[in-house]
């Protein structure tokens, strides 16, 4: 199969993720969409690796996974504490960062 098709799939997944981040309010869903985007990137990295015939992309994909794992830990912790404080997981409720 043509590896380029994987790239199309990755782009599709990324778009779905991005759309989710922008339109969903629930922090958990937004978070999952972010993960989706990361995985889309991973997919394209692996596809590139295959296309170029070297392992650079795969190595980078592993890095991404590690970072994503760390991010999940921190991100979920933030979401949980946010939920505790506000009894809501809506991202729109946390808009104190405006001036």
């Amino acid at each position: 199969m043509n590896p380029v098709n994987y790239l199309y799939l990755a782009a599709l997944l990324f778009t779905i993720g991005a759309t989710g981040v922008v339109i969903r309010k629930n922090a958990i869903v937004v978070f999952m969409c972010v993960e989706l985007m990361l995985n889309a990137c991973n997919l394209s990295l692996v596809a590139f690796s295959r296309m170029h015939g070297n392992l650079d992309g795969q190595i980078l994909a592993f890095f991404t996974m590690v970072v994503a794992a760390a991010e999940v830990v921190v991100g979920l912790a933030i979401i949980v504490s946010l939920f505790r404080a506000r009894h809501s997981a809506s991202v729109d409720d946390a808009s104190l960062m405006k001036l």
Partner: peptide, 12 residues
């Protein structure tokens, strides 16, 4: 300053 709404999605 008005661009800074505080909504994460705007920034996204």
């Amino acid at each position: 300053r008005k661009l800074q709404t505080g909504y994460a999605r705007t920034y996204a």
